[in-house]
Design a protein around this nucleic acid. Structure first.
Length: 665
DNA sequence: GCAAGGTC
């Protein structure tokens, strides 16, 4: 029998139908196996990695195992998907040849190799080869199976090296900071090649915000009139008040139009969705991990294409027109017609061959889906149709005005043709009006204003912008970025959106920068990529790479002052509980626990000031401060329902006030 | 109970 192994069930089914024509499906151990009619060939799908690299059980006890022993420990591959492994073994016994047909990339090669190790245990002599395809289309698949090659063991080795390096660094440093700070059990503090640089970006942005000193500047605006009134802005940003005032004084009753331009500007369509772009747009109404799991669901139920892709160019093989036409019989009829009127796809910069950009594959109606599913589905449909629709056209007017030597500028834009904007309703079409003017025309100056402004600190990252930044620095993959971000939340490193780091995050990043800075930098990923390329080329050995990591970490462990490290982090943890200053003694107030939780003074027992807290729901200290007393605004996240925020001091005062009114009335 | 990477 000929056994074909793919990366997942879905591709197994599709490949079987392309290769065999008619397929008979059997369940073995609850796993789908797709047989040819004669029963001589079978395709089975894995579930990505079905084995997991880990330390042997003896290393499980964090407090008893010396960290140094993690450096050169023998690692084990533990089967994660028991049933798939058993099915594979059963099929392997009957097989005389095996074709590995997992995804054609580094991880795919390792996933295939893992399956092969299981197969060879029960059938060591089986003939093995590899089919490489970059799209599941009949021609591509037939071609790949006609021109089969060898399994690329070096490539699998490279991926395995990544696993070892990630595990070793992650385990050693995670345990180091957790142990030294006493954060054990479910409260442990983690470190990793991808999560730590991501966290560092967030922490560093927060530092910029905290250290930001606003500088004042002045702007001048004026209202001009010919037949209509309009506002224009002085071209200069004044850094000195006197200069602004001088310029302001010079502006008289009249001004002259110096330049006037009227033109049409074409605004291109948005590019096809890859995972990052999709998550960014969904981010306007949903967190990325939720958007991803819904997309996953829509994909599994056949509504949209595979949601994990880097590709922003539709492949030729995709019949765009056929897909659009389906939507003529849906509530997107109007949008489909707009797309059909043009049918020229936009394209992004990145083109890969593995999966097409995310697009709808079937028409759904509102009733088929939950509310959130529909929102994601609608986003994918509208985006898809927009990428094929006509460009938008704006009529733009620009004017430059001379007011006694002071130069003002204004612009206006009016939409001429909506084009894709009518389809993709997630961007607002905002028009600004500017009257038609002529060069040399004299305008009345109706009014003028001097504005005092202040420079603002940079904004915090949002879930979408940090995922974009991770992509830019090559941190994580399209499949893992949203999960790693979620990890930062569950570890208590960050809160809210825009993302605010906690004090623990500051402490952990500071500690890591001191002890093992490489793990907080994207360079580590870049270096690992280089090493993996050389392993694939056969120019570098896995052992060398692993040993290099081991030696580095060994050095870290030798020179680290665990007590000092623990102190720094514990102080950070403590700072996270501080909510403000005690109105009675001026010492710090912090969240404390006795019978229940409450806010108490660090001057206790001398100062007995306390504030009550709600006892239910998760409690967070936000980055916002109350205007009245400077106390931190707190957030309660109930297990059900919406979260709410409050100032603990204001609420207490209000509550007391109400009590007084009730008793007096 | 550690990471990151596949997939669900």
């Amino acid at each position: 029998m000929w056994l074909i192994v793919t990366e997942k069930d879905n591709t197994a089914r599709r490949i079987a139908s392309i290769l065999f024509g008619s397929v008979s499906t059997k369940k073995i151990n609850g796993i789908n196996v797709y047989y040819s009619k004669d029963g001589d060939s079978a395709v089975v799908g894995l579930k990505g990695h079905i084995v997991e690299l880990d330390y042997p059980k003896e290393y499980n006890n964090w407090s008893k195992v010396p960290l140094k022993s993690l450096l050169r420990a023998r690692l084990v591959k533990r089967v994660k998907e028991r049933r798939i492994a058993q099915t594979l073994e059963k099929l392997a016994k009957e097989a005389d040849r095996v074709t590995i047909a997992t995804d054609y990339d580094r991880e795919g090669e390792l996933i295939g190799f893992e399956a092969l190790e299981i197969i060879r245990r029960v059938n060591p002599k089986v003939r093995v080869d590899r089919a490489k395809y970059s799209a599941i289309t009949p021609s591509e698949i037939r071609n790949a199976f006609k021109n089969r090659t060898e399994v690329n063991y070096n490539l699998a080795k490279a991926a395995e090296t990544r696993q070892i390096v990630d595990l070793m660094w992650g385990a050693v440093l995670t345990r180091l900071i957790s142990l030294s700070s006493g954060r054990m059990g479910k409260d442990f503090l983690s470190v990793g090649r991808v999560q730590s640089p991501t966290l560092r970006f967030i922490v560093e942005r927060e530092k910029e915000i905290r250290e930001f000193v606003p500088t004042p500047y002045w702007e001048i605006t004026a209202v001009f009139k010919n037949s209509e009134k309009f506002e224009a802005k002085h071209v200069k940003r004044f850094l000195k008040k006197e200069e602004a005032e001088k310029a302001f004084a010079r502006i008289g009753r009249e001004a002259t139009v110096r330049k006037f331009v009227e033109k049409e500007v074409v605004e291109g369509r948005p590019i096809p969705f890859n995972t990052t772009e999709f998550l960014r747009e969904a981010g306007k109404f949903m967190p990325p991990d939720r958007a991803m799991s819904i997309a996953e669901n829509l994909y599994m139920n056949g509504y949209i294409s595979y949601p994990r892709t880097d590709n922003t160019v539709y492949p030729k093989s995709l019949n765009l027109k056929a897909i659009v036409k389906q939507f003529l019989n849906s509530e997107f009829r109007k949008e489909a017609e707009i797309a059909l009127s043009h049918m020229k796809p936009s394209r992004g910069k990145r083109e890969t061959k593995d999966h097409p950009p995310i697009h709808p594959v079937a028409v759904a109606s509102r009733n088929d889906l939950s509310k959130d599913e529909w929102r994601i589905y609608e986003l994918v449909v509208r985006r898809f149709l927009a990428t094929l629709s006509p460009e938008a056209i704006w009529a733009v007017r620009q004017v430059e005005i001379d007011a006694n030597g002071e130069v003002f500028k204004a612009s206006g834009r009016q939409i001429v043709r909506m084009g894709w904007r009518e389809v993709y309703t997630y961007v607002k079409t905002e028009e600004t009006h500017l009257p038609k003017l002529e060069v040399g025309q004299v305008l009345q100056v109706l009014s003028k204003k001097l504005h005092e402004k202040k420079t603002k600190p940079p904004g915090r990252y949002t879930m979408s912008s940090i995922i974009k930044l991770m992509e830019k620095h090559n941190l994580g993959t399209k499949s893992t970025r949203h999960e790693i971000l979620k990890k930062l939340y569950t570890r208590g490193y960050v809160r809210g959106n825009p993302i605010t780091p906690t004090e623990i995050a500051f402490a952990v990043i500071d500690a890591l920068k001191k002890e093992a800075e490489v793990i907080t930098l994207p360079d580590m990923t870049a270096k690992l990529e280089q090493d993996m390329d050389r392993i694939e080329e056969g120019r570098l050995d896995q052992k060398e790479v692993v040993e290099e990591s081991a030696r580095f970490l060994e050095n870290v462990l030798e020179k680290v002052d665990a007590e000092e490290l623990g102190k720094v982090i514990r102080e950070g943890i403590k700072r996270d509980r501080v909510v403000g200053m005690c109105p009675e003694c001026g010492k710090e107030l912090e969240i404390r626990k006795a019978k229940g939780r409450f806010i108490g003074c660090t001057g206790y027992p001398e100062c007995r000031f306390t504030l009550p807290l709600p006892q239910k729901g998760r409690l967070e200290v936000t980055a916002k401060k109350c205007d009245k007393h400077g106390m931190s605004i707190l957030r309660i996240r109930p297990s059900k329902g919406k979260s709410w925020t409050f100032c603990p001091y204001c609420s207490y005062l209000e509550w007391k006030e109400r009590g007084r009114q009730d008793s007096s009335g």
